[in-house]
Nucleic acid binder design. Structure first.
Length: 637
DNA sequence: TTGGGGGGCGCG
DNA sequence: AAAGCGCGCCCCCCAA
């Protein structure tokens, strides 16, 4: 063992670099299991995946080189896992309490190495929550101010360990060794002390932030996020199973249509780059030069131009936009039909072709979308690389995701969850009655709008009802409603939307009043909070729509996280959560376990509703079904 | 070559 | 008087 005396800020501590197995065993067995430890790991890429950019993040493509444990007093152990062996730490990791920065990363590696649900807090989650609560939104934009304390905008708003440390303690962290190579035989003293320091910093930040979590009443939400880290770790590790042969067939089809459309477009648009808004603006101007009234009414971008452009060229008129809803008005023109076709299929080819193939995992063959916890303003998860939350929803596309031989996918979704929450929060009698009686709220709305009995509402009419419920629920005005409805392919007169607006607000008077109460609250406090207490600061301009929306959307996000946790508790023996899409959860199970998983998942959704809204008019919020492919399972709901 | 902003669009 | 909200990814364009 080599020891170093270190000091950072006002903290003096010892870094103990341990390489001997017997010595490590002795140290680990002597560590008190009841206190909180700062924890960090450094990973080294597997030699076969040195070129793989994200290999260090993936437990299958890298291994844990160092495990750092800070005891909160004065000792930061840096264990060289390569020479010690990971098994030495398993019992301790199972029994202890830890905190790490971006702990999903640690949880994922440690889970893969045999400790599935380590008790670990996260100083990054704490920082995000506290930061969201702590400063008044009415302060001026820090970007406009001078930089009195030498902190960049990044360190004011970012949540990396160094940014958080700088913000809390006003000291600068030397980040030089952050991306150093942890696979070298002999680690340098600088590397070892850097590694040891990180465990100290995450501990210190957590100690500073935990009282603030309490102060701002963020405990319930924080607890939810802390537990949810394991759901995220599980999803990221398991990944989404893909039928790559099927994908290749789909892609072939997309490419064919795209190329055909491109050839057609060539005739009409010549060498104009169809993806370039600048060039398309030129084309539009020329094409309609004899019909100024068309150009007059053509929608334009909201911004005049980029700021840099403005500085350079001075003010300039706003550009035309090429949104599908506008283009859709000109379907009698062959050039527009060709253009729309090109846009649709180039999107598919560009986003879900080669780019998806490249993301195929080298050892599992799955896609492994990442999920971010605590990053969004409302508290939802977000997904990336690839984004599993915005895959086209048609059955053909979703069937690309297919369980392997002998397995099935179980899908469950929270039915009309945002509307249910509108009802529960406001206790609007009309909304509540609908859900209590298990009726269809979109049909009810359509019935009022078109003045027909509920039983006689047609499918297109129901669709209008749905658009009205969703758009007006958060404060859209009648003028925009018509434009918005076009996105769903609905054409109605301005007078119709005017009427719909009035009908909505007179039908749901109590809900409308609740929205106003949320706006008043946000205006008074400068922020609004979800059911479990996550705060979101709001500017005056945001309040009208975002205040009610944040409560609803944010609480729906909490409900889904809670449901996933409960699902994990009851079916972790035989099912794995593989995806989550805001109101939808996807499980992978052996075929024979599917019926049980369906039960568990829908029960978990209902149990979450009971937890958050014990007095809800209905707790039956979800259905589940199973099939080999995602699209087919969804279709059965 | 890289990074950021904007337009556009997919999902809930 | 007027106001959908929340994401991430693709391409283009421009500046450094």
């Amino acid at each position: 063992m080599r020891t170093f005396k270190n000091k950072f800020h006002t903290w003096e501590f010892q870094t103990l670099y341990v390489t001997d197995r017997a010595e490590a065993m002795q140290i680990v067995s002597s560590l008190d299991r009841s206190i909180l430890y700062g924890l960090d790991i450094e990973t080294a890429k597997h030699p076969d995946f040195k070129e793989h950019k994200q290999a260090g993040l993936c437990p299958r493509l890298s291994t844990i080189r160092l495990l750092q444990i800070f005891d909160g007093v004065g000792r930061s152990y840096v264990f060289d896992v390569w020479s010690i062996g990971f098994d030495v730490f398993i019992h301790f990791l199972k029994a202890g309490r830890f905190v790490a920065h971006n702990a999903v990363f640690e949880a994922q590696h440690i889970r893969y190495n045999g400790v599935p649900d380590i008790n670990i807090g996260c100083s990054m989650l704490m920082s995000q929550l506290v930061h969201g609560a702590e400063f008044s939104p009415f302060e001026e934009d820090p970007e406009e101010e001078a930089e009195p304390d030498g902190l960049s905008r990044y360190t004011r708003t970012g949540h990396s360990l160094d940014a958080v440390t700088q913000r809390l303690f006003k000291v600068v962290v030397n980040k030089q060794n952050q991306l150093s190579d942890w696979s070298v035989e002999e680690l340098s003293t600088a590397q070892i002390t850097y590694a040891g320091l990180d465990a100290v910093l995450t501990y210190r930040c957590a100690k500073e932030l935990l009282p603030k979590i309490k102060e701002y009443k963020l405990e319930r939400h924080y607890k939810l996020l802390k537990d949810s880290q394991h759901v995220v770790a599980e999803m990221q590790l398991q990944g989404l199973p893909v039928d790559w042969k099927y994908h290749a067939e789909l892609l072939k089809g997309w490419v064919a249509v795209k190329e055909k459309a491109a050839t057609e477009c060539k005739v009409f648009f010549g060498d104009t780059n169809l993806n370039s808004s600048k060039q398309m603006n030129e084309w539009l101007r020329t094409y309609f030069k004899d019909r100024p009234e068309v150009l007059q009414n053509w929608p334009r971008t909201t911004r005049e131009q980029s700021i840099t452009d403005f500085r350079k060229n001075g003010p300039k008129e706003r550009a035309f936009t090429f949104v599908r809803t506008e283009l859709g008005k000109y379907l009698q023109l062959p050039e527009i039909v060709a253009l729309l076709n090109y846009k649709k299929f180039s999107k598919l080819v560009d986003t879900y072709g080669e780019s998806l193939t490249k993301k195929r995992h080298p050892t599992t063959g799955n896609l492994h979308p990442g999920y971010t916890l605590g990053m969004t303003t409302t508290g939802r998860l977000s997904s990336r690389n690839p984004n599993a939350q915005n895959f086209p929803s048609d059955q053909e596309f979703r069937n690309m995701f297919k369980a392997p031989e002998g397995y099935e996918l179980v899908v469950s979704d929270l039915a009309q969850i945002e509307l249910r929450l509108q009802a529960e929060f406001s206790k609007d009698p009309v909304m509540c009655a609908v859900f209590k009686n298990g009726e269809d709220i979109y049909k009810q709305m359509a019935s009022s709008l078109f003045k027909v009995p509920v039983e006689q509402v047609t499918k297109p009419q129901r669709k209008v009802g749905k658009v009205v419920m969703l758009a007006l629920g958060f404060g859209m005005r009648s003028k925009k409603l018509g434009q918005y409805a076009l996105n769903s392919g609905i054409h109605e007169s301005a007078a119709f939307w005017e009427k719909a607006y009035k009908t909505y607000h007179s039908t749901f008077k109590v809900y409308s009043t609740w929205c106003d109460r949320m706006r008043d609250r946000a205006t008074k406090l400068g922020y609004i909070e979800t059911l479990l207490g996550k705060r979101r600061k709001l500017t005056k301009e945001q309040i009208y729509t975002a205040a009610p929306n944040t409560v609803i959307q944010g609480t729906a996000a909490e409900l889904l996280l809670l449901a996933m946790l409960k699902c994990k508790q009851t079916c972790s023996d035989f099912a794995t959560i593989v995806a989550s899409v805001h109101d939808e959860v996807l499980l992978l199970v052996k075929k024979e376990d599917a019926p049980q998983a369906i039960e568990c998942l829908s029960a978990a959704m209902c149990a979450a509703m009971v937890d958050l809204f014990p007095k809800a008019v209905s707790h039956k919020v979800a259905d589940a079904s199973a099939a080999v492919a995602w699209g087919d399972a969804k279709e059965e709901l």
